[in-house]
Simulated scan of single mutants.
Amino acid sequence: MTPAASSALFSGPFALGTFSARGCGTPSYPGLVTPEGEVLDLRAALDEPGLTVVTLLERWDTVLPRLRDLAASRTGDRRPLAELNVHAPVEPRQVFQSGANYRQHVIDLEMAHRSSDDPRTEGEARAEIAEIMDRRAAKDLPYVFIGLPSAITGPYDDVVLPHWCEKPDWELELAAVISKPAYRVPVEEALSYVAGYTIANDLTDRACVFRRDMPAIGTDWLRSKNAPGFTPLGPWLVPAAFLADPGDLRVTLKLNGETMQDESTQDMLFGVARLISYASQTARLLPGDLVLTGSPAGNGMHWGRLLRDGDVMEGSITALGTQRTRCIAEQA
């Protein structure tokens, strides 16, 4: 699939993506896309036949001025976006995912899982959970776990719901894309390690999140989040320089045209810088890696309406564009 026609696909003079020509077996390539929907093949423009978005990110600070020049020059062989397949904008080596990072989302989830014999009123329960969330943001640490690159799919690809998946849910998220190796980075410097941002829909089977046979172990993120195609990504990687503030973007998901999620990244408990810094205290982040920042309120569990065959999800984030994916139920 390709994006719907738009006068402006994203903010800024250009974005990056991964494309292929229509037709069977055509190889993908990194491209510079303009807001008007023209794509420049960066392998030819930079005279690097083996170029990928990741190898481009490995020298981001030096290549970014060159990309600005290419976008401004209007030179090179540019193809209409409508003639191309759009793939996930980057193939990361590592995916870092943040859980329980939106204040209202966590409150809603806690309320949804509240025990039937909870003596508190709904108002009392919400107030107590909200107080815990505020204390987390002030004094505690982010909750970050690892996802699989093999779960990533394109921004317009169909999403297959496995036959064993009982409660598939959506989680639209802002994703930061790393530009250079980051290890033990202080919060104050963390945003300098971000090349840009994109959109991720971190699908989750709610029935698999907690192990039924070993509840003391806790969450099972492998089974609940990492089926093939469970992370639609993109459509674009928009350079960080073109976003005024990643902490003030609107995250919106529509299901079959009905708005389900509509929240600002201001509701994050831990901002992008704190998440990157925290993850880097343990792991070495690499160019092209993704840091997913968590999902806001409005998931299927909140609405009592989970994904099913034929559903169409449309996810957008301010300045980053829109992805559109259709759910296909796998036959047992």
Rank of each mutant, 00 (worst) to 15 (best):
L172P: 06
L40V: 07
L70N: 07
W236P: 01
S277T: 10
P215M: 14
P155N: 03
V86W: 04
W221A: 12
P168Y: 03
R274W: 00
A88G: 09
P35T: 10
R284A: 14
L191K: 06
W164S: 12
N256C: 01
R120P: 10
T75N: 12
A125Y: 13
E173K: 00
P3Q: 08
R184D: 07
N256I: 01
W60N: 07
P49Y: 06
F270Q: 06
L249H: 06
D169L: 02
M214Y: 13
G257N: 06
E189R: 15
P186C: 09
D311I: 11
D47C: 11
S192E: 15
G123C: 03
N299Q: 12
E128A: 13
P215F: 14
V86C: 03
M260S: 15
E166N: 06
L222T: 15
G271D: 15
R324N: 08
S280M: 08
D108W: 02
T55N: 13
V54C: 11
L306Q: 08
E166P: 04
E173Y: 02
M260A: 15
T265S: 00
T55C: 12
A130M: 10
A8G: 10
D311Y: 12
G229Y: 02
P65C: 07
D158N: 15
L307Y: 09
F210I: 15
F19A: 03
A72N: 04
G99R: 04
Q323H: 13
P65M: 06
A207F: 08
V187H: 00
R135H: 13
A332Q: 10
Q97H: 14
G12R: 01
Q266E: 14
Q104G: 07
L9F: 14
V39M: 04
E124P: 05
P162C: 11
A137Y: 03
V312F: 05
A45E: 00
T318P: 08
A21T: 09
A175R: 01
G147N: 13
G304P: 06
W236Q: 03
P80W: 02
E189N: 13
A5G: 11
N299V: 14
Y278Q: 00
I317E: 07
I129G: 00
V159C: 05
W60H: 14
L233G: 04
L70T: 08
L253A: 14
A130D: 15
E58G: 12
T121G: 10
